[in-house]
Every structure is written in C-alpha cells, then in structure tokens.
Simulated assay, not measured.
Amino acid sequence: MLSPTKTIAAACMLLLATACAEAPPPAEPPLASASIGGDFTLTGTDGADVSWTDFEGKYRLVYFGYAFCPDICPNDVANLARGYKALKESDPAAAQALVPIFISIDPERDTPDVVAEFASAFSPDIVGLTGTPEQVAATAKKFAVYYAKGEETPDGGYLMDHSRSAILFGPSGEPIAPISVDQGGKAVEAELKQWVS
C-alpha cells in the first residue's frame, strides 16, 4: 500500500498527464480559407505610395474607417490602440512583429494630413493610409469591405456607411482572424496574443 505522500504524488502525476493529454490542439485561424486581402497602392501620411508588400514579414491589423466619423471609428481605433499598447507592455516581441493599419474609406475628406492627425491622436504606432477614390475602392474590394457615402447635410457634411471590422493578417499577408475592437482594449490584446507569435 502506498503512503499518503506517494498516493498524493501519484494522483498529481495522473492529473498532470490527463491534463496534458486533453489539451486541445492549436485552433486553425478562423479566416484561414478566406480570400481577402491582397496588394494595393495607397498614400501614406507623408504623401508617399505605400503597398501591401511593404509590410511583408509583419503581422498586420487592418481597420477601415474614416476620420470624420463621429463615434464608431474613434471608439474602435481607441480600443485597437489600447490593445496594441497593452501588447507592447506584456509581449514586446509580439508587438514588434505587428503593424496596426488604419485605411480611410473617405478619400474626399481624408487627406494624408487628416489621416495623420487622426491616427496619431490614438497612437504613434498606427500607420494611416488614404488614396484616390479609385485606389480606396479597389483596396476595399480586395478586403471585402463595404462602404457608401451618405446623404449630404445642408452644410455639406455627410456620414459614411461602412462595414465595421478589424482583421489580423499574417506575415505573408494571409488572413488570420477578425479582432474584436468593439469589445475593448483587453479583448484586442488577448486575441492578438492568441495569433501573433
């Protein structure tokens, strides 16, 4: 008969072995088979051309929105920035491997200067991009992003209707997963930690 100490040790070993045997394998990325993303040419905040391939070798967290958005886009981008900042503190190597990107779907108003001011208001790490209406339309189509200009108000203002999502892409530009920017910075950090290595 085993002594109480040996019985406890044996039980612990069995528990550990069972836990290891039942650990689920890494999940396949939810967007692994999706046909979204691809090369583009847009304009950076310095006025220079920027292509998708310029980020080769980096994970990319892409959010489409617009600087004149009154509430949704600022909230989402703030959460994205909070999540990225938290990742920089908890896992600097993962943050170093990732580029957060904001792409405007309102090229009429979102000049490089406007996008620069908007992106930098949340984080100096966010890459802001805009372009001609044709460039933005082509990019949005590749990334399966819907957007449309709303009716103009008497003062000439308008809202943009657009799909609301942030998508994480891998180092080769492959789609990995949607990121819940609407759930707060902690949710963003947790999801990034799951996929960025």
Rank of each mutant, 00 (worst) to 15 (best):
C73F: 04
S104R: 02
P74V: 04
P92E: 00
P112W: 09
A97K: 14
D46N: 14
S35H: 13
C73Y: 01
T45A: 00
I36D: 04
P124Y: 01
R109E: 11
T132M: 03
S104F: 03
K142V: 10
G47M: 02
A78V: 08
V62N: 03
E108P: 08
S123T: 07
E108V: 13
N79V: 09
A81D: 04
A86I: 10
D125V: 01
A119K: 05
T45I: 12
D125Q: 08
L87M: 10
S123W: 01
Y84K: 07
S51V: 07
A48P: 01
D106V: 11
S104G: 12
C69L: 08
C69F: 04
A97T: 06
R109I: 11
V115Q: 08
G131T: 08
T45E: 09
T53N: 14
D54V: 07
V115R: 05
A121M: 12
Y59R: 11
D39W: 01
T53S: 15
D91L: 02
F102H: 09
D54S: 10
P100I: 12
Y84H: 14
Y66A: 07
P70S: 07
P92N: 08
D91P: 03
A48E: 14
Y63G: 06
V77R: 00
S35K: 14
Q96T: 13
Y84V: 11
V114K: 12
Y66E: 06
G131I: 04
K85A: 15
A137W: 00
N75I: 11
E89A: 15
R60P: 03
S90M: 06
G83K: 07
A121N: 15
A48D: 12
V127E: 12
Q135S: 12
Q135G: 07
E56S: 15
D125M: 01
F40Q: 04
T111G: 10
F64Q: 02
P70D: 05
D49F: 03
D110M: 07
D39T: 10
A138Y: 03
P70V: 06
T130V: 10
N79G: 12
D54A: 12
A78N: 08
V115I: 14
G131L: 05
S51R: 15
Q135L: 05
I36W: 00
T53V: 08
A95F: 02
Y84N: 04
T139Y: 02
A137Y: 01
F122W: 08
A94T: 10
D113I: 07
P100T: 11
T43R: 03
K141N: 13
T41H: 05
T41Q: 08
Q135H: 11
K58D: 09
L42F: 02
G37V: 09
V50L: 02
Y63K: 09
